[in-house]
Amino acid sequence: MTFTNQLRKENDDIFQLIFEHPFVEGIGKGDIAKSAIEHYVKADFEYLNAFMKIYGLALAKSTSRKDIMYFHDKISFILHDEIHPHHNFCDYIGVGYESLQGHSLPPTADHYIKHMMYHAQLGTLGEILGALLPCPWTYLEIGKELMEKYQPKEDHPFYQWIRFYADSRVENTTNDMRMLLDRYAEHISPDEKLRIKDAFRKSCQLELKFWEMAYSLEQWPSDGKQAIHS
């Protein structure tokens, strides 16, 4: 069993919870509160900005031109391709994409980004890959799951979103990252493998929390409320 197959098996419980989440199910059913979609796009735009920067830090830690090219290409994919699912959501709620950019992060998105940045700044290339991989992998499986379960047609309100994430481009992104991590894992210590496993599982958990963050319209506690001291 490859290292990434082992990661997937050990985190199947989280993947299943993601598939069953009401926001994800709402995409399949074509029925999500517009306020939840808006909350999601605001946070995901900033999350993907951070994701590109972490790709850049991974690029800096790469030791081969092949790996440098990989991270360069994936930055371009987010910039030029991964905006299309956002546009599908924005069209559905009737809000311009630009108006949902530049907003502050809710707690879960803030924590997720800092989790990845921690491994990018202080960890190995393997830890970075472990922290990054759950994002494309869970979205790929969400897309395939929704495509198989609901078999959406072109008149489905989220057809473009589902088709994008079930598409070969996201599958290639996931498989390429998996192969990179599997190759890296062949030459590392058991302790580093444990750190990668921890980074991967926490990112899976934060993917689940990200969906809940959007669904519940998660916000920071009000700064205007003063603490009560006994």
Rank of each mutant, 00 (worst) to 15 (best):
138 T>R: 00
202 K>N: 07
182 D>A: 02
10 E>Y: 06
138 T>C: 05
175 N>W: 06
4 T>K: 00
140 L>A: 03
169 R>H: 11
187 H>F: 13
129 L>K: 00
217 L>E: 14
134 P>G: 03
222 S>M: 10
191 D>Q: 14
44 D>I: 03
221 P>H: 12
116 M>A: 08
182 D>R: 02
117 M>Y: 15
85 P>M: 07
72 H>W: 14
14 I>Q: 09
154 E>H: 15
120 A>R: 04
212 E>V: 08
191 D>Y: 13
136 P>R: 03
43 A>N: 15
131 A>H: 01
192 E>R: 04
201 R>H: 02
219 Q>A: 13
13 D>F: 13
110 D>N: 14
113 I>G: 00
16 Q>A: 04
102 G>A: 05
53 K>G: 03
108 T>W: 07
127 E>G: 03
67 D>F: 02
25 E>C: 07
86 H>F: 09
46 E>I: 04
219 Q>M: 13
194 L>Y: 10
224 G>A: 12
57 L>D: 08
145 E>V: 06
78 I>P: 00
221 P>K: 14
150 Y>A: 10
149 K>A: 14
94 G>V: 04
146 L>R: 05
181 L>V: 00
38 E>T: 14
176 D>H: 03
166 A>Q: 03
93 I>F: 04
129 L>R: 00
63 T>D: 13
212 E>P: 10
46 E>L: 09
226 Q>H: 13
113 I>V: 11
33 A>Q: 12
126 G>V: 00
170 V>K: 00
51 F>C: 04
80 H>K: 11
105 L>E: 01
133 L>W: 00
142 I>N: 02
44 D>R: 06
220 W>V: 05
147 M>I: 09
88 N>G: 11
58 A>F: 05
13 D>Y: 08
215 Y>W: 14
101 Q>L: 11
133 L>Q: 01
143 G>V: 01
194 L>H: 10
160 Q>D: 15
17 L>R: 13
50 A>E: 12
124 T>N: 08
229 H>D: 03
196 I>F: 01
62 S>G: 13
111 H>C: 06
230 S>D: 11
200 F>H: 05
188 I>A: 06
18 I>V: 15
192 E>A: 02
100 L>M: 08
206 L>V: 05
